[in-house]
């Protein structure tokens, strides 16, 4: 079952911490976002294999936008 990693708020992508194909554990940081001049780590909502990364560093994202997919 695929689970989306969503942006919890409007902001900018700062860093991608994982690669496609990586095994990620629940609560592990996948992406680091910047919002309101603050770095916010976005964690995996569940454990699984990182299937897809949909954003790249520097990109602006909206709240609710899918950042990555875990399967």
């Amino acid at each position: 079952m695929a689970t989306n990693v969503e942006a919890p708020m409007v902001g900018k992508i700062l860093k991608i911490e994982k690669n496609v194909g990586d095994q990620v554990e629940e609560d592990e940081v996948v992406v680091v976002m910047e919002a309101m001049k603050m770095e916010i780590p976005i964690v995996a909502p569940t454990s699984g294999v990182l299937k897809e990364i949909k954003v790249s560093p520097g990109q602006a994202v909206e709240a609710g936008e899918v950042l990555a997919v875990i399967e």
């Binding site: 919890p8 708020m9 609560d27 919002a35 603050m38 916010i40 780590p41 964690v43 909502p45 709240a63």
Partner: peptide
Amino acid sequence: VQVEGQKYNKKNYLLM
């Protein structure tokens, strides 16, 4: 608030 919230639940984003 964002920092404190995420200390206790990593999936917690209270900034907005």
